[in-house]
Design a protein around this nucleic acid. Structure first.
Lengths: 265, 265
DNA sequence: TATAAATGTTCGACTCTCCGGAACAGCCTG
DNA sequence: CAGGCTGTTCCGGAGAGTCGAACATTTATA
């Protein structure tokens, strides 16, 4: 857990949330594993788990603690809460049907990348995550596509907070490399990723923005690296481009329709 | 928040998690709203929010606190962690394509019902939830289908914990009604819901079990009540029956294939 | 069957830390 | 410029979390 500045955070709550991270990281954990991972007394861990269980965040099945279904419930709420969610969802399914690769839509939050719509099995699988948190911005096509649109100070803030740890041998690990890469991204209009997050995995991502220029997130295509040659690369980039246009047009339609709302009954 | 027995729970963590519930319930909240909702000092709320934000559970956009994308990440993990997730997912999409209504798959956890696979917009929408938690078992077709398979003591435990609050005028509110309803469910093989959770909403659900008889969850079909007549009711029930068979066959295949695992590398 | 090693749970006392209140810096709107 | 709001910091007191030990249960090992 590389939490940076613990000033002002409540240690009790932080300990509880750290337990959640540990359970995620270990993909389910027993009591003793958690005691060892946290350096807390058994009774303390017990109290935390009991509290988390009380609120539905943790369940105990077969002497193993796991994250609860409440996270599904809250996750779905977060997804549907976003005003662009239907547009993003439709764009991803269109992209998925048009392309031979996997499509998804990801956003940046707190300097990390979370996939919101796409194939569950890959996007957020804990097997590919370093700690309990989602992907780093610098190891994903979506992350690079998104931060390429940010002012430099904001990018530096993210680097300061999370660093540039390597996920594979191909990962970017220095600021200079990263900023050079971001310049390339801006130049060619999309970001590419060749095994920088997961060995043998290739992806491209393109940021989508509101009419006012705010970045919503990034549309992505990903798949195994061995199928990639110059031609497929070009076709996939072309597809991604068209998907981004569809998304931004959908957003424009969303905001120019004052009637036909679904909010009130 | 009708948390039952606060013995042994950590008040600090509980306060933080209660804030999450409040944000969900209010669909985003400002600081002062949270201060009022919780009866805590402003500085205390501030500390909690800072801690939650530090871990990615809360974000602040435009002077409003919202739940963070990390919940999507954790929710997806919970979904994919379940060994039956692919079978459930495939069954739901089959059912959805075959039926004119909305299909989903829900599970019971901690005495509440959470929809795992299905249309996001409806299943877990906070607009239809009484408190921050998912649906009650007694107001949903899925809940009734699931607990109809449970021993009576387990059903009573759930009632003791959550009570039988009415969501609409049609809701079941007494133990006697509920147990009579569960007997009907067992008799006809599926549970029906006519506006007991949401006014004007109709649904049916059928529990699916492992070969050893453990209940995985419930497959459901739902839609507006006004389209329901005897004929559609019969066709939908028939579809649900076939979907349940597909699911249970899928599970059987899952367990009789010792080779082709994806767990080790 | 007995022994050992897990987990789940309770209890009390020390001490850490969370809570409240007040005060101040920004940012809007009037 | 006053009057809302939010976001943030500070400090003292009191309340609450942490630890460690002990016991009840269950599962595994000899």
């Amino acid at each position: 857990m590389n939490r940076h500045d613990p000033s002002g955070v409540l240690k009790t709550t932080a300990a509880s949330l750290a337990l959640v991270d540990h359970i995620l990281e270990l993909e389910g954990a027993t009591m003793s594993e958690l005691v060892e991972a946290t350096d807390l007394a058994k009774s303390t861990v017990h109290a935390h788990l009991k509290t988390l269980a009380e609120y539905g965040y943790v369940v105990n099945i077969d002497n193993e603690y796991q994250l609860g279904a409440k996270f599904c419930h809250l996750g779905d709420y977060v997804r549907t809460r976003k005003d662009y969610y239907r547009v993003a969802q439709e764009t991803v399914s269109w992209l998925d049907s048009e392309s031979s690769m996997d499509a998804d839509f990801a956003v940046e939050e707190h300097g990390r990348i979370v996939s919101l719509y796409g194939d569950l099995e890959f996007a957020n699988s804990p097997r590919f995550l370093i700690d309990g948190s989602p992907f780093h911005v610098h190891t994903t096509s979506s992350g690079k596509a998104i931060i390429a649109e940010y002012p430099e100070t904001r990018v530096r803030d993210i680097i300061d907070r999370w660093g540039l740890p390597a996920a594979t041998d191909a990962s970017i690990t220095t600021e200079d490399e990263l900023f050079a890469e971001l310049a390339t991204v801006r130049e060619q209009g999309y970001a590419e990723n060749s095994g920088e997050a997961v060995e043998g995995f290739w992806a491209i991502g393109k940021a989508v923005k509101s009419p006012r220029g705010e970045v919503y997130g990034s549309l992505n295509l990903s798949g195994p690296a061995y199928v990639i040659d110059e031609e497929t690369r070009a076709t996939q980039a072309e597809l991604l481009e068209r998907a981004a246009e569809r998304f931004e047009q959908g957003i424009a339609e969303l905001y120019q329709t004052p009637a036909g709302e679904t909010d009130e009954e």
